[in-house]
Design a protein around this nucleic acid. Structure first.
Lengths: 218, 218
DNA sequence: TGGGCATCGATTGTATGCAATGTCGGCAGG
DNA sequence: CCTGCCGACATTGCATACAATCGATGCCCA
């Protein structure tokens, strides 16, 4: 029981969050404190603290004496999440265009070039990983911790709803083209252009989700 | 000990948050769990839960075994907060221009007209209150819960740094003029214009803070 | 005299126990 | 048969007790 610098409550928080985000813990499921405690081999105390943390991040809902349930996102709420993420991405791009250092700009360009190659090679998995890093780089380039954290949290929360986005035929190349517009605007310091290009890019992701959802609703 | 529907942890969280925001608990101050518990007449458990909640909202910093301290905002971090708030206000204005219902638009217009009267009358206190409501109305008009909540949280956090903004001579009238531009853009559905106008407006608040800070740093 | 180290105190992390409250099932009355 | 009340149960909120870790103080030795 040594070398657990991350506290039990922290580990529980991430474990439960992972469970929610990867679909193991389904929306609406009641999170019983004692059950979770036994399941993870700890007492209720760290469970309670983990739950409180998750509540703040919006992954679960807790009402004073009614326990905790996995947030059940209505389609409207999911829509809000996508809109919010699009806006935050666009905002980060705007700020990045104004704030990125020359080194960050060069690295962004390098990332983008690498992704262009991946898109041409047609490797969805590698592209997807690189895509996450690409967007994270823009968050970081905004040089604004509060916004970057919020954007990261949003991305985590919308994650479950856009799993297969790069499976769609031709999405890779289009995504890369859109990235190109974003990168050019950022590198040239065009704040408004970066905002618009990123908004366009992420809104298309949202459209892809809606198409996907509509298809699966049949 | 009845009728405490808000749980003790919740009440503690708000109490401590108020203490931080109104300056009673100064940045850098160590928050001793046992001390807080005794001070509020409860045990450590609800204190811990309250602290965890405050950590998530950014008001305090906690490190695994090193306790909690009131977040000490460096000037750079304060700057980040102001930038973030400006961006979120602008984003809300953008979304509001696209999403507000006719009723909301009429109410916004009414609010603005009332504030114009207050500005003309030169009543800083009443204007300040109305100003909060005005901006909140725009948050709500964005019709996006995640963004609105984030914006509200940011406004709370920057609050302590912009107390006397309307004390500056002539600020009232200028503020009202800027609001006018924002309102016109929103009412006409000009998303980009609303974004720009709000960004301009809030950035001026930031400038006022910097002037204030620079003056007081002497 | 200065540095390394052991031990102590303080404080946090975790576990468990108790009291209070919400929930579910059964029962009486209409 | 349905509706409303009542009591037992389950679960949460809180308090207290125990364990583990960090920091500091003082001592010993070079």
């Amino acid at each position: 029981m040594q070398a657990d610098n991350p506290t039990r409550a922290e580990k529980l928080a991430t474990a439960i969050a992972d469970g929610i985000l990867d679909g193991t813990l389904k929306p609406g499921l009641r999170l019983d404190e004692l059950g979770l405690a036994r399941q993870h081999g700890v007492s209720r105390t760290p469970v309670r603290e983990a739950l409180r943390q998750l509540m703040q991040s919006g992954l679960i809902d807790m009402r004073p004496r009614k326990g905790a349930v996995v947030s059940k996102a209505t389609p409207l709420q999911v829509e809000s999440l996508f809109v919010a993420m699009a806006e935050m991405e666009a905002t980060c791009a705007r700020l990045a265009a104004m704030s990125m250092t020359p080194i960050e700009r060069r690295r962004l360009q390098a990332r983008h070039d690498a992704m262009t190659a991946l898109a041409a090679a047609g490797d969805p998995d590698a592209y997807s990983d690189a895509n996450v890093a690409f967007h994270s780089a823009i968050y970081a380039g905004a040089h604004n911790a509060p916004i970057a954290e919020f954007a990261l949290g949003l991305r985590r929360r919308v994650g479950p709803f856009r799993r297969a986005q790069f499976q769609v035929e031709g999405r890779l190349l289009r995504s890369n083209q859109e990235h190109d517009a974003v990168v050019r605007a950022i590198l040239s310091g065009d704040a408004a252009g970066a905002h618009a290009a990123m908004l366009h890019h992420v809104s298309l992701v949202e459209d892809a989700f809606e198409t996907f959802a509509a298809t699966n609703a049949a």
